[in-house]
Simulated assay, not measured.
Amino acid sequence: MVRPSVDDLQFNTLTVTDSGRLVRPFFTDEVKAAVWDCDSYKNPGPDGLNFGFLKEF
């Protein structure tokens, strides 16, 4: 049986600068921009609250 292998694949890696950005705190403006970019009728989780609700309140 022949099994697939990943030996010949080249994966992208993060630079030290990029990896440092993954652990920094979020800014309020970044979170607001991300929410406002989403469709108001999309539901981000199982709680039933859509982005329209989040934008309003």
Rank of each mutant, 00 (worst) to 15 (best):
residue 5 S to R: 15
residue 39 D to C: 06
residue 12 N to W: 10
residue 10 Q to I: 14
residue 33 A to M: 04
residue 12 N to M: 13
residue 10 Q to M: 14
residue 36 W to Q: 06
residue 21 R to C: 04
residue 4 P to L: 15
residue 41 Y to T: 10
residue 54 L to V: 12
residue 41 Y to G: 06
residue 27 F to M: 07
residue 38 C to R: 03
residue 55 K to F: 03
residue 36 W to T: 02
residue 35 V to P: 00
residue 2 V to R: 12
residue 29 D to K: 13
residue 32 K to G: 00
residue 40 S to P: 11
residue 1 M to G: 04
residue 47 D to N: 06
residue 55 K to M: 12
residue 28 T to L: 06
residue 55 K to Y: 01
residue 54 L to E: 01
residue 2 V to S: 08
residue 7 D to T: 15
residue 38 C to Q: 03
residue 29 D to C: 06
residue 26 F to R: 13
residue 55 K to T: 02
residue 53 F to W: 13
residue 13 T to C: 08
residue 17 T to W: 05
residue 40 S to N: 11
residue 5 S to G: 13
residue 31 V to I: 09
residue 11 F to E: 12
residue 46 P to W: 04
residue 35 V to K: 03
residue 45 G to I: 03
residue 43 N to G: 04
residue 4 P to S: 14
residue 1 M to L: 07
residue 24 R to D: 14
residue 26 F to K: 04
residue 51 F to G: 01
residue 27 F to G: 06
residue 30 E to F: 01
residue 37 D to P: 00
residue 10 Q to L: 15
residue 8 D to E: 11
residue 34 A to M: 08
residue 25 P to H: 06
residue 51 F to K: 01
residue 6 V to Y: 15
residue 38 C to E: 01
residue 54 L to M: 09
residue 7 D to R: 14
residue 16 V to F: 07
residue 37 D to K: 08
residue 20 G to F: 07
residue 42 K to V: 03
residue 21 R to F: 07
residue 27 F to T: 04
residue 3 R to A: 12
residue 21 R to D: 04
residue 44 P to A: 05
residue 39 D to S: 11
residue 49 L to A: 06
residue 32 K to L: 12
residue 43 N to H: 07
residue 17 T to E: 11
residue 52 G to M: 01
residue 14 L to Q: 02
residue 41 Y to R: 11
residue 40 S to L: 05
residue 25 P to L: 06
residue 53 F to H: 14
residue 49 L to S: 12
residue 32 K to A: 15
residue 54 L to N: 03
residue 40 S to D: 08
residue 29 D to A: 15
residue 46 P to S: 04
residue 25 P to G: 09
residue 5 S to I: 14
residue 57 F to G: 14
residue 54 L to F: 04
residue 23 V to H: 10
residue 4 P to I: 12
residue 1 M to P: 06
residue 53 F to E: 05
residue 5 S to F: 13
residue 56 E to I: 02
residue 35 V to E: 01
residue 22 L to S: 13
residue 25 P to R: 10
residue 41 Y to D: 11
residue 12 N to G: 08
residue 19 S to P: 00
residue 7 D to L: 12
residue 18 D to R: 14
residue 53 F to K: 12
residue 47 D to K: 08
residue 3 R to S: 13
residue 6 V to I: 14
residue 19 S to R: 15
residue 46 P to E: 09
residue 23 V to E: 11
residue 9 L to P: 01
residue 38 C to M: 03
residue 56 E to Y: 05
residue 48 G to P: 02
residue 42 K to Q: 08
residue 24 R to P: 02
residue 6 V to F: 15
residue 51 F to V: 04
residue 17 T to R: 10
